[in-house]
Simulated assay, not measured.
Amino acid sequence: MSVTTLSAPAGAVGGPGAAAQLAPGVEDDGADCAVPDPGLSPANSMLPDPFTKLNGTRITAKSDWRCRRAEIKKLAEKYVYGEKRRKPESVTGTVSRTSITVNVRDQGRTSSFSAKVELPSGSGPFPAVIVYGGFGADTATIKASGAAVISYDPFAVGREGTPRNNKQGAYYSVYGSSSSTGLLMAWAWGVSRIIDVIEQSDGSILKADATGVTGCSRYGKGAFVAGAFDQRIALTMPIESGSGGVGAFRSIARESGAQPLSSAYSEQPWLGDAFNSFTGNPNSLPVDTHEIVGMVAPRGLFIMDNPHIDWLGARSGAVAALGGAEVYKALGAGSNITYWSDVQDGNHCAVRSEWRTPLQQHIRKFLLKTGSDPGVFRISSKKPGNLSEWRNWQTPTLS
């Protein structure tokens, strides 16, 4: 199979420990940015310019990205995923060598859930990767690389199989079963509460500043959203996330065989209720997933895709990753994003030999902070993405 291989773009950061300062240590670094209420913009068949603010001006400095990211966040919450509620009034819990418990109180309501912990060999404290639902990056490789595995059951926080007006799980126990927030964002909220508890622990078992997240299929959608909306996550690793995941909405709608947006919206209440208005006309969305990719920048992002199953829309995944990589480049962090769809095994959510070495490299670089391997784009010739077909904007040189 021929493959497009791109090494780290110019302006990439490198060197041992280069990733150490990438996660700002707060869930939402731009929470204090003044963001106007985003209205709908005119329909646009091209990917929106991630560098143009809501007021129509373009950002000129790397420092401008912080509040531009806050605008993208608000657009994504309003039109795609639903609101992610901020940290509750009270989050308590425990971290042991085998489990994490989370107890939440907000607005007079309470909920709780727990997650299993598996530690690697050694004395610790350890970085950790939160694995959605038992399906994500290979847990044996994660542990062998020196990171703990936190097994997270997203259904405890947002259950599938429920109608949109009667959502269930820890998130909805607090914020209401008729909340317009979709499951992906509820799951992301749960990940953030796990990180809260790790931060509050004594740090003897798990490191608070070295958390990754991964998942495959629906859980890949979840891991992508979790990483985009919590800046404490140092490494985000979505796998085969398909429609409603990494794949650009505008491209999904035109990719032959990809799961239609209407199907992804109705299969489960993954996406926010407001997204229903755009399933047939994604050109009217004022945001797209390349900008959600950009929300992760400059932190570590390793996107894994499967070009053998049309339903997964890997061509659209490549388009979104290439578009989001422009944000990474503009921030001087081009070596911190990897997209890899050049794989031989077509089985959904398989453990793949091609991903083992880059997985090890990403854990070293972003969680152990001992590596400096550059990111790469290995795009399968079966599902190539062509960013030039989808953008009418150029990437600025930011001061």
Rank of each mutant, 00 (worst) to 15 (best):
Met185Phe: 01
Pro269Leu: 00
Glu160Gly: 13
Ile363Gln: 06
Ala61Phe: 02
Gly82Arg: 08
Asn276Arg: 14
Gly334His: 08
Ile142Trp: 09
Val213Ser: 05
Gly317Gln: 07
Arg378Thr: 04
Gly136Asp: 02
Cys216Met: 00
Val13Glu: 01
Asp153Glu: 10
Arg86Glu: 09
Trp187Leu: 00
Trp340Thr: 06
Arg85Asn: 10
Tyr172Asn: 09
Pro125Trp: 09
Ile130Thr: 08
Ile292Ser: 00
Asp29Tyr: 11
Ala115Ile: 00
Asp29Val: 11
Ser241Ile: 09
Val213Met: 07
Asp305Lys: 02
Asn103Pro: 06
Gly215Ala: 02
Tyr175Phe: 13
Lys329Leu: 03
Gly245Phe: 08
Gly146Met: 04
Asn165Gln: 10
Ile59His: 02
Thr214Glu: 07
Arg164Asn: 11
Glu89Trp: 01
Leu6Arg: 11
Phe229Glu: 10
Phe278Pro: 15
His308Phe: 09
Arg254Leu: 12
Pro154Ala: 11
Met46Ala: 13
Ala318Gly: 12
Pro120Tyr: 14
Asn276Phe: 12
Ile205Cys: 04
Lys221Ala: 03
Thr52Met: 15
Ala70Cys: 11
Gly212Asp: 05
Val296Arg: 11
Arg378Cys: 00
Gly300Leu: 07
Phe224Ile: 05
Glu255Ile: 12
Thr60Arg: 12
Glu71Ala: 00
Gly244Lys: 02
Gly124Cys: 06
Tyr219Ala: 10
Arg250Ile: 12
Gly257Leu: 11
Leu119Phe: 00
Val26Leu: 05
Ser90Gln: 14
Phe126Glu: 01
Trp65Phe: 13
Glu389Arg: 11
Ile292Pro: 01
Arg69Glu: 12
Ala34Glu: 13
Pro358Val: 06
Glu354Arg: 05
Glu291His: 06
Leu40Trp: 10
Glu267Asn: 14
Gly25Ala: 04
Asn281Glu: 05
Asp196Gln: 11
Tyr219Ile: 02
Asn347Met: 03
Ser388Val: 05
Gly203Leu: 06
Lys116Cys: 00
Lys84Tyr: 00
Ser388Pro: 02
Glu71Arg: 05
Ala61Gly: 05
Ala228Thr: 06
Ala19His: 06
Phe155Val: 08
Trp270Asn: 13
Met1Arg: 13
Gly182Asp: 02
Gly371Met: 01
Gly385Pro: 13
Gly385Ser: 09
Gln200Lys: 15
Arg193Asp: 03
Arg164Phe: 05
Thr370Asp: 15
Phe275Thr: 00
Gly15Ala: 09
Gly17Lys: 06
Gly190Cys: 03
Asp373Arg: 03
Glu71Trp: 01
Ile59Tyr: 04
Ser262Arg: 14
Asn55His: 01
Asn336Glu: 09
Ile233Met: 07
Arg164Glu: 02
Asp29Trp: 10
Thr5Cys: 03
Glu199Trp: 08
Glu83His: 09
Glu267Ile: 13
Met1Thr: 09
Val225Cys: 05
Leu387His: 11
Gly215Ser: 04
Gln107Leu: 10
Asn103Asp: 15
Ser284Tyr: 03
Val174Leu: 03
Trp311Asp: 14
